[in-house]
Computed example of a mutant assay.
Amino acid sequence: MSGAAGARRSPRTDLTHDNDIKKGQPPVGRAALFGLCPQCGAQTLFAGLAKFAPRCRVCGLDFESYNVGDGPAAFLTMIIGALIVVAAILVDFAFEPPFWVHVILWVPITAAAVVYGLRIAKAALLASEHQRQAAEGRRADDEPHD
């Protein structure tokens, strides 16, 4: 068999319940909002606005070993773009401001929403991968035989 039907579920990928989270590990939501290390809870996840630090300065967890990538970027940009367009149209119909007011208002709001949305989404993915011990999938015939 191949594909999902032939895949074997790894015992490492069982989802944890809130009461199973080890002491010191913040919940995914809190880790995402505040940039907390998913292992020790220290605020060391980011080295820049949306760039992960190489490792946690407190517990030494290697953040580069997680494969978060830029997956959330396009998704967030589309959602935030749609929300900003709707808001701009509503403001235009309600107040009819000049064009320069739209530029002054919506460009910084859009930039901030995308950057901080990306920061939260990437942190949530990394924290989720850590808590669920996510790893690359393997086929049964790729496993080493003793």
Rank of each mutant, 00 (worst) to 15 (best):
Asp14Gly: 14
His17Tyr: 04
Val107Leu: 07
Leu15Ile: 04
Ile89Cys: 07
Cys37Ser: 07
Asp70Asn: 01
Ser10Asp: 13
Ile120Gln: 01
Pro108Val: 01
Gly29Lys: 03
Val107Lys: 03
Gly6Asn: 08
Leu126Trp: 04
Ala121Trp: 12
Cys59Lys: 02
Ala47Val: 10
Ile120Arg: 04
Ala111Lys: 00
Asp142Ser: 11
Leu33Asn: 07
Ile89Ser: 05
Gly29Glu: 05
Gly117Asp: 01
Glu96Gln: 11
Leu49Val: 12
Ala31Cys: 09
Gly41Arg: 00
Cys37Ala: 05
Gly69Asp: 12
Phe46Thr: 05
Asp14Val: 14
Cys59Glu: 09
Met1Ile: 12
Ala32Ser: 13
Leu49Gly: 15
Lys23Arg: 14
Ala124Trp: 14
Ala50Val: 14
Lys122Thr: 09
Leu36Ser: 07
Gly48Tyr: 00
Arg139Asp: 09
Ser2Cys: 10
Pro54Tyr: 03
Asp92His: 08
Cys37Gln: 05
Ala32Phe: 13
Asn67Arg: 11
Glu143Gln: 11
Val86Asn: 07
Pro26Met: 06
Phe93Ser: 00
Phe34Cys: 06
Ile80Ser: 05
Asp62Asn: 12
Ala7Leu: 13
Ala7Gly: 08
Ala73Lys: 01
Ile80Pro: 11
Asp14Phe: 12
Pro72Thr: 11
Pro144Ser: 11
His102Cys: 05
Val68Tyr: 10
Lys122Phe: 12
Val91Trp: 13
Pro97Asp: 05
Leu83Phe: 11
Thr13Leu: 10
Ala53Phe: 02
Phe75Asn: 02
Ile109Val: 15
Cys59Gln: 07
Asp62Gly: 03
Arg12Gln: 04
Ser65Met: 13
Ala112Leu: 12
Gln39Met: 13
Ile80Arg: 06
Thr77His: 02
Thr110Ile: 02
Asp141Asn: 13
Asp146Tyr: 02
Asp18Asn: 01
Glu64Asn: 07
Ala7Ile: 06
Gly24Ala: 07
Ala42Val: 07
Ile89Met: 13
Leu83Glu: 05
Ala88Trp: 03
Phe99Cys: 00
Thr77Ser: 13
Val91Gly: 06
Ile21Asp: 02
Asp70Thr: 02
Lys22Asp: 13
Asn19Arg: 03
Val91Cys: 08
Glu129Ala: 14
